[in-house]
Design a protein around this nucleic acid. Structure first.
Lengths: 185, 185
DNA sequence: GTCTATAGGGCGATAGAC
DNA sequence: GTCTATCGCCCTATAGAC
């Protein structure tokens, strides 16, 4: 066993989510998060670029999606491929429903956190567009398929959170995709 | 004539854009913007919630779009109605091409500003979705049409900025819409 | 690990318009 | 008198610099 308790990063993430939920994002200081996690303020900023980032696991989801996109059948349309890649991340969500709900209610309660969430989705859209171009999809189809795919994901995620039946997010992605197709035809 | 020069808000907007372009967003202080505009720092914060907001005219665009959506033929599909409403804002953009380009290069150079831009678009999507529901469009079609419409707008705006031929943004909106329809069919 | 500049909020004062 | 725009000063926490 080392000089310090292990998993400082995870402790900071948990402490932050708890405090943001208890007293609100604005009324929580980094010092309080660090204290609850048993580290110094400086350590917080070594793990996370800013106070918001502690709720977002960097590029983890975007990397998952791009990676899944690569293993997707080449004969699928770009949009179908994106939707399938998104579906393949289902367990990332389905395994953490309660955590996701708590996290989302914290995010929804604060404009600054909503901004950060949106830029994560936008940068995921960019990564997906890039991956589609690598697949041979040309512009503007690549950009539009990526944006449309993210729109599908947004709607699906929201419905997944509210789903009393707790069906997999994959189901909601499929439904939202079908709905998008009907709306654009 | 009053005690102060008129249009403090406009002077602050112009001073901010100039300074952000000259030395970058991070290296510009609110004190410098205020000084150039001939007001105090405190006045800046009475007009704008934060240092980013000075580049975004509140809800102006969203209000234009929602308003235009109301005057749109009732027999159009939700997505076509949104696209038409977006087209009707063309002069808002076409009349300010140089300003838009300068502003956009400042925004693109800074992640914090990109975040703010995204939340403006997202809240425009929400307003549009709401307006569609008022028109009788049910969920999830309303949400998806709104998101898809905003995706069309994003792509169109980008292409409008890069268009050497300087065609109206309305042309780019029509093209992007057609492309989206082809990609989802 | 320590130091510091700056964002941004609170509150009261001032002075013109009406 | 009220309303509104501006200023001044004080404060704390963030986040970057050293």
């Amino acid at each position: 066993m080392g000089r310090w308790e292990p998993d400082a990063k995870g402790r900071l993430e948990r402490a932050a989510l708890e405090l943001y939920a208890e007293r609100g994002f604005d009324d929580t200081t980094v010092a309080e998060i660090a204290e609850r996690a048993g580290v110094t303020e400086r350590t917080f900023f070594r793990h996370f670029a800013d106070k918001r980032e502690v709720l977002f696991r960097g590029d983890e989801l975007a990397l998952l999606v791009v990676d899944a996109l690569k293993s997707t059948p080449a004969d699928l349309s770009p949009l179908d491929a994106v939707a399938l890649a998104l579906e393949s991340t289902a367990s990332f969500f389905d395994d953490r429903r309660p955590h996701s709900k708590k996290r989302q209610s914290v995010i929804d309660a604060n404009p600054a956190l909503r901004e950060r969430e949106l830029i994560k989705l936008a940068s995921m859209a960019e990564s997906v567009a890039h991956a589609l171009r690598d697949r041979g999809v040309s512009d503007p189809a690549a950009g539009l398929s990526a944006e449309a795919g993210i729109a599908v994901f947004k709607v699906a995620f929201e419905r997944w959170l509210d789903d009393r039946a707790e069906r997999s997010i994959a189901v909601h992605i499929r439904e939202a995709l079908a709905e998008l197709k009907s709306v654009t035809s």
